[in-house]
């Protein structure tokens, strides 16, 4: 015998189910006023430094159908690459946003500031990116991914560099569709499957 390890295992995940919005986005679920103040309605307040951008997209299943019940959270630093809570962070950036696929079209919109590059333990900085966490009915454990931007220099990013199949890098890069507007589609499975992360 050996000494027992005292590490506790993480609680197992379960799907968020079809009614996740009741808990996380009550107004979207049809229950406005459930809370005096909802959490994560916008990642920025008035006066946030940097360029305000809008990212639109859909989450597609393995048949190419856009999910109508997906809920996404985004987390990001401010325009200088400083996360909320770190010294010098922009007080107008809360960093967290919750948004849902539209119940009719399946399209989502994220309005935020474009984040700055973030230092890493690897020496090289991460190129500007927004972290995403996708939950929905049928997704047993939340899927992590990242939005990078096609008009930034992504060539030295330590995460993108780890993707062996180079065409798959494109699945993490938002495409410019207008002035300060981008499109980022998430494909859960099959052709063009988005790179999902375990980190």
């Amino acid at each position: 015998m050996v000494q027992p390890l005292t590490v506790l295992p993480e609680s197992p995940s379960q799907t968020a189910g079809p009614y996740v919005h009741i808990g996380l986005m009550p107004t979207y679920a049809g229950n406005p006023g459930a809370y005096a103040e909802e959490i994560g309605t916008s990642p920025i307040a008035e006066g946030a430094q940097g360029t305000v951008i809008e990212i639109v997209g859909s989450v597609y299943d393995g048949t190419g159908w856009a999910l109508r019940d997906a809920l996404i959270e985004s987390w990001q630093p401010d325009a200088a690459g400083i996360f909320p809570g770190q010294p010098g962070a922009d007080p107008a950036v809360s960093g967290l946003c919750r948004f849902a696929a539209d119940a009719v079209s399946g399209e989502f919109t994220l309005r935020t500031v474009k984040p700055g590059p973030v230092p890493s333990r690897y020496g090289k900085a991460f190129a500007p990116h927004i972290s995403l966490w996708v939950v929905a009915r049928g997704i047993n454990i939340g899927l992590q991914t990242r939005i990078y931007f096609e008009d930034e220099d992504n060539s030295d990013d330590p995460l993108l560099a780890r993707i062996e199949q180079r065409p798959r890098v494109e699945t993490l890069i938002a495409k410019k569709i207008g002035e300060n507007r981008y499109r980022f589609d998430i494909r859960l499975q099959g052709a063009g499957e988005t790179v999902f992360l375990d980190l």
């Binding site: 990001q76 630093p77 990242r146 780890r162 375990d198």
Partner: peptide, 9 residues
Amino acid sequence: LLSMESGPS
């Protein structure tokens, strides 16, 4: 999934 050590994000 793509694995890597966690970072600031």
